[in-house]
Design a protein around this nucleic acid. Structure first.
Lengths: 359, 359
DNA sequence: CTGTTAGCGCCTTCAG
DNA sequence: CTGAAGGCGCTAACAG
């Protein structure tokens, strides 16, 4: 038996405990009809007197809309799902933070799921979001293949990728000029007289791969050698890989004079390995990394890094997603053609981790 | 018009685009009744032949349960809300990660919301969770007062606090022995000959306050002076406060020989200030902190810190919450008496940031 | 084991 | 501006 039919408002004898107030309780309390109340609750116009009646009842009964019921009928939840490859990754959490702010402004709720770098889990998480009927999905994927998003495609839920793209197909997304940025960073080293430049890069995600290409571009343009001992691009772009790869580099008889790290995790691993081996930078080896997240502030020697416009990822991602959601509602269908891909530009932050060999 | 009544499965003429398949579509496809299908979908027993029929239809129509509709009738969403004070805080994200894993095992979904250190936002976030009808809430609060959880209390949704407690009332929660741990850290310094020991601590959250008390306990026991210039406990426990407070300490004519940082953010700020001022530790000043999160691995000199059992926070929190949810279902009401408060114990990790003045 | 019948709480036509 | 009725997709009794 529902609370609305009981005696004491909000109390249900049969269940023996309080049930949340419903719109029907408001009806009993005010004598108005469900429709009127619903209308007012959704911003419609009602007589001033009725408005007061309803407001009083809402306050008295602690009424809160049941988003579940509302979602069922409107088939829209005003909630966006956000799936990230690893919630403990600073890059992800910064973007999550931003997305939350951005979406909050628009009156949307956010449903965050964490894949923990596991594509299978990611696939399930996306299904979870789909079943929760989110209005759209933002995704920083762990997987390199779009199959993880299949359920979202089937349900025709708009998806926007952030930072990364898939290998098998390209989708709406916002990325940075990874290839250029990496090339720029390498050129920065070259201009400072470095010739023996190593790279540590993941092999999976699109970002790592693009950045590696940028490294190669710059090295080839400058006609510098890329001995395979200097090219560490077979692991996943994690702190652990950065750490072991750097250890390998340090073992070489002919050490590089500089190393490019293609993401934040690798930056961390490299710094760890250097500290542990008592190798100082930039004195013994120069380091250029990606992302300026907290780390740089804590290190004695600030890292020179490619800075990404962290805020804009979230901002732009939300913008595109909202556009797609609007389109879907209006045109009653998703436009399969023409993916939007916003490419943000990066900036090289000059820290103190690069030695100028010319001077 | 719903899809189930149309011709082509999953296609609705009137709307002009595909609608997700419903249980009714499965009914049309298989000729079975709604109840049978629903039963099978929820793990019930049906004839093998029907089972196959249903599975085939599910596959063919890409059927996925509509959790919204299910939630409406079961009044339970198999979803837990998790509210954190700052999603970019490593402490939070570690715990979120763990909670996700733990809850995933139990077949629960997770709805994460981020307060960005803003109590008002936190209150709204909790309301959001309540309206989303989560079955329970885990919270690492930003606020120091329980009013932010009012909507959850009104809706009688079980809440378990993690790490922090409120000032105005105590709730189910899992914390660590903050006071003891801090006292232990200070004693560690005292045993190594330190007498001039400063502390940098937040003034708001329960953890900071408890840790500060622990500092005071140890200092009083050892009958050591606590000049007010050494006691920095008026800010919020952030990196920024750690940074400025450490700068203040460095300005003193009579500098402390050691400093206790009462959380991870403060650790970071202190290290930043020391690096910037070219003050080295432990040579010039000894440092003891809280939490061994990533940072410690990256620093040249590993910090000596109180380690908290990060995994257990999430684990125990989930455990308590599940118990409460079970109780609520069985006893049809929340037991107001007797809060569960699990207190985990900590461990002092010996890095290289403390100098032994005895030797 | 299966099918029928009621709703869950809300929004949205349509009359009035 | 208001009210009555129908239905969103699913589950929970029952009855067969």
């Amino acid at each position: 038996m529902k609370s609305g039919t009981g005696g004491v408002p909000g109390f249900c004898k049969e269940k023996g405990y309080r049930m949340p107030a419903t719109i029907k309780d408001i009806k009993e309390e005010t004598g108005l009809s469900l429709a009127t109340i619903s209308k007012y609750l959704n911003g419609g116009n009602v007589l001033p007197r009725n408005k007061e009646l309803i407001e009083a009842a809402v306050k008295k009964l602690h009424y809160e809309v049941n988003e579940i019921a509302r979602g069922l009928v409107t088939n829209s939840t005003r909630t966006i799902g956000v799936s990230v490859f690893d919630i403990t990754d600073m890059f992800c959490s910064m973007i999550l933070h931003r997305i939350g702010l951005e979406l909050g402004k628009l009156g949307y709720g956010v449903l965050i799921v964490d894949s923990s770098e596991d594509p299978e889990r990611e696939r399930n998480n996306i299904r979870f979001l789909v079943n929760k009927k989110v209005d759209g999905i933002l995704c920083i994927p762990a997987a390199t293949n779009s199959y993880v998003l299949k359920s979202a495609f089937d349900a025709e839920i708009p998806v926007v990728l952030i930072d990364r793209q898939f290998r098998d197909r390209s989708l709406d997304g916002v990325t940075v000029n990874n290839r250029e940025a990496a090339a720029g960073a390498v050129n920065y080293l070259i201009n400072r007289g470095h010739k023996k430049i190593a790279v540590i890069s993941g092999s999976e995600e699109s970002t790592s791969r693009e950045r590696f290409r940028g490294y190669r571009d710059a090295m080839e343009d400058a006609e510098l050698a890329m001995p395979k001992e200097y090219v560490m691009n077979t692991g996943t772009a994690t702190t652990k890989y950065g750490y072991t790869a750097m250890q390998e580099l340090l073992k070489l008889d002919d050490r590089p004079t500089a190393v490019l790290c293609t993401n934040y995790g690798i930056n961390l691993g490299v710094v760890m390995a250097l500290n542990e081996a008592q190798v100082s930078y930039p004195e013994d080896i120069s380091v250029v990394g990606f992302d300026n997240l907290l780390l740089s502030n804590v290190l004695k020697t600030r890292l020179t890094v490619v800075e990404q416009p962290m805020e804009r990822f979230g901002q732009k991602g939300v913008e595109i997603l909202m556009q797609r959601i609007r389109e879907k509602k209006e045109k009653k269908g998703i436009n399969e053609e023409g993916h939007i891909n916003v490419i943000l530009s990066t900036h090289l932050f000059e820290g103190d981790s690069v030695r100028d060999l010319n001077s």
